[in-house]
Write a protein that binds this DNA or RNA. Structure first.
Lengths: 133, 133
DNA sequence: GTAGTCACTTTCCTCTAGGTACCTACTATA
DNA sequence: TATAGTAGGTACCTAGAGGAAAGTGACTAC
C-alpha cells in the first residue's frame, strides 16, 4: 500500500478551492468512482468486496480497492475484516457518510427533474448553437 | 427476468445502470473545474472571460474555454458575444443552472458542518488505522 | 511603430489515473 | 489433482486530460 494511494485531491484542486467552497466536498465525495460506491452502500447496505465489484460494472479491483481505502480514510466508509477462510471483508457507510443522504436525495431529485432539460439543451446546441466569435 | 410480477428492488440491485442515479449529475455538474466555474458565476454574477480566468487561479484559457463550452452546451451557462473591439464576451448562469443553487447551498452547508470530521478521520487513519488483512 | 487588450485557438508535451495481467494464502469441492 | 472462490497486491503500460507557450485579428493608446 505504501505511498501510492492517499494523496489524491489535496493539491490537485487547491486553487479552485479558493474560489469555490464546495470544491473540497467534490474532491471527497464526487471524485471518480466514489459516487457509485457511496450510492451502492447507501442504497443496499453493508456489502462485501465482490458484491461491490459486481454491482459497479467496469470497475477494476485495483481501483475499487483504492477508492474504498480513500473513503475509509476520509471516514465515510467502515471496513470490517473477518479473518476467515476464504477471507471476508465487509464495507458499510459510516455515520459521517450517512450525513450525505439528504445531499444524495437532492441530487437524485434534481436529476429526475432536470436531466432531460440538459439533454434537450445539448441537442439544441448541436443542431444550431455553434458559438460565434 | 421474464414475466415475473412486482420485483421492485431486484432490478435495481442487479442493473448496474441503476446502481447510481446521481452519476450523470456528477458528470455534468461536478467534473473537473466545473464546480469553481459554476460557483463563481453563481456567487458573483455575470462575468467576462478574463474575470473568470483571474478569479479561478491556475486554470488555463484552453481549459476554461473547454469547460465553458461544455456548460453552455449543457444549458447551464449562457454566453453572450459582443462584437466590439476588443471583443467582449459575457457568461452568466442560465435559468436551468440556477436550479442548482439549493444543491450548492446544501453542499456548502455540509462542508461547513463536516469537513473537519473528514480531516480528523484522515489524521486518525494515518496515525493508527492501517488496514488489516 | 510598438505595445497592449480580449477571447480565444493551436501545437506540443507531460503526467498520472486507470487498465491489464498476474500473484498471494487457504480451503472446499469435484 | 485441479479448480474455484476471496480480498486484495504489484508491476507494467497506455490513453487522454490537462498544462505551457505562442499565435490571431482588430483596434487603441502611447
Amino acid at each position: 500500500m505504501a505511498g501510492e494511494t492517499s494523496r489524491p485531491a489535496a493539491d490537485a484542486t487547491t486553487d479552485p478551492e479558493l474560489a469555490c467552497p464546495i470544491s473540497p466536498v467534490v474532491d471527497i465525495v464526487f471524485s471518480r468512482w466514489t459516487s457509485p460506491i457511496l450510492w451502492s452502500l447507501h442504497a443496499f447496505g453493508r456489502q462485501r468486496f465482490v458484491e461491490l465489484e459486481r454491482r459497479i460494472e467496469k470497475i477494476t479491483p485495483k481501483v475499487l480497492t483504492q477508492r474504498l481505502r480513500q473513503l475509509e480514510r476520509d471516514g465515510l466508509v467502515v471496513r470490517t475484516y473477518h479473518p476467515e477462510v476464504p477471507p471476508r471483508v465487509e464495507y458499510e457507510i459510516s455515520e459521517l457518510g450517512r450525513t450525505l443522504s439528504p445531499l444524495f436525495a437532492q441530487i437524485a431529485e434534481w436529476a429526475a427533474a432536470n436531466l432531460d432539460h440538459v439533454e434537450r439543451a445539448r441537442r439544441h446546441y448541436d443542431e444550431a448553437g455553434a458559438p460565434r466569435g
